[in-house]
């Protein structure tokens, strides 16, 4: 069999591609295979990788198609733009596209809860909440490392803080 691309050399590489559920077979020679794989590598940058990951979650409903065209109120980026370029437009994009980005962050980092430092200004606003948040983080870590006694103590502290906040509201 001759190569499907150059029709000159014998085909020694056999490719099966599945695109959108359509299977196609390609029989090509080594030279053409090398050219093809180089072309693929060049096309396949980080943005494709991210976009691919973002696609992973494609909700089957129509709703996702509508969501794709929602514009970020601060910078005007759409989720379709993000999928194309692999970069967000501004900090507010994270709120605008929260429901898509949550699962994406989870896949990239394996977590969606920041436990590191806070900028001084943000800390002032949310310090009270972080008290409980911080404890929740410690709780999940304690459970992970099977330190159950420690976990029970933290759980009690969380309850206590939550009760206090409830009383305040009443």
């Amino acid at each position: 069999m001759l190569c499907n691309i150059c029709n000159k050399n014998p085909a020694t590489v056999h490719l099966t591609e599945i695109i959108d559920g359509q299977m196609s077979e390609l029989h090509i020679c080594e030279d053409c295979a090398r050219k093809k794989s180089q072309a693929m590598e060049q096309q396949f940058g980080l943005s494709d990788l991210l976009a691919g990951m973002a696609d992973f979650d494609k909700t089957k409903s129509e709703a996702s198609a509508i969501g794709m065209s929602v514009k970020c109120p601060i910078c005007g980026l759409t989720y379709a733009d993000f999928k194309k370029i692999g970069r967000l437009g501004c900090g507010e994009c994270y709120n605008t596209f929260r429901k898509y980005l949550g699962p994406l962050l989870k896949r990239i980092h394996g977590s969606t809860q920041h436990t590191g430092k806070f900028p001084a200004k943000a800390a002032k606003v949310s310090r009270k909440r972080t008290g409980i948040q911080e404890l929740r983080i410690r709780l999940s870590k304690a459970i992970e490392s099977e330190a159950f006694e420690e976990a029970a103590k933290i759980r009690d502290q969380i309850k206590e803080l939550e009760n206090k906040e409830l009383k305040k509201k009443e």
Binding site: Y94, L105, G116, S126
Partner: peptide, 27 residues
Amino acid sequence: EAIAEKLDFAFLSDWGYLTACPTNAGT
């Protein structure tokens, strides 16, 4: 910390510091 006193950073309490590429978000 010193810069954060002079400039407002894009930050969310659950997702941390917000970056152009989500691979850098958090810390």
